[in-house]
């Protein structure tokens, strides 16, 4: 399973919206899955995600591959410290 930590308005895709607690979605990763694939499967619209994505604590592009056991942190566009 990939452990996906969601922040800000993206917390609504998890069971928890209380910001004092973690909003985590566990999802099975397939062989060639990228971060993009995982987000699509959770149902998060691409345009709600900023470029602030961390795979195992590492700043990542959407195209990086994920595997079970990874931790993925995803911040929304309006918390995005990202631009471009």
């Amino acid at each position: 399973m990939v452990e996906v930590h969601l922040y800000g308005k993206l917390r609504r895709f998890s069971d928890n919206q209380d910001p004092t607690r973690h909003s985590i979605v566990h999802i099975q990763a397939g062989e060639a899955d990228t971060i993009n694939d995982i987000l699509r499967r959770i149902g998060i619209p691409r345009d709600e995600v900023g470029d602030n994505i961390f795979l195992n604590g590492r700043y990542s592009s959407f195209e990086r591959k994920v595997k079970n056991g990874d931790r993925l942190g995803v911040f929304p566009d309006n918390m995005a410290m990202i631009i471009v």
């Binding site: 922040y7 900023g50 911040f75 309006n78 918390m79 995005a80 410290m81």
Partner: peptide, 27 residues
């Protein structure tokens, strides 16, 4: 800019918006 604009990250959450981000970065 998404970070500096009215209603942007700094305006809405304050500089503490960084707590979750830097924590997620393991830093």
């Amino acid at each position: 800019n998404d970070l500096t604009k009215p209603g942007g990250a700094l305006n809405t959450y304050g500089t503490a918006v960084l707590i979750n981000v830097i924590n997620e970065a393991g830093a």
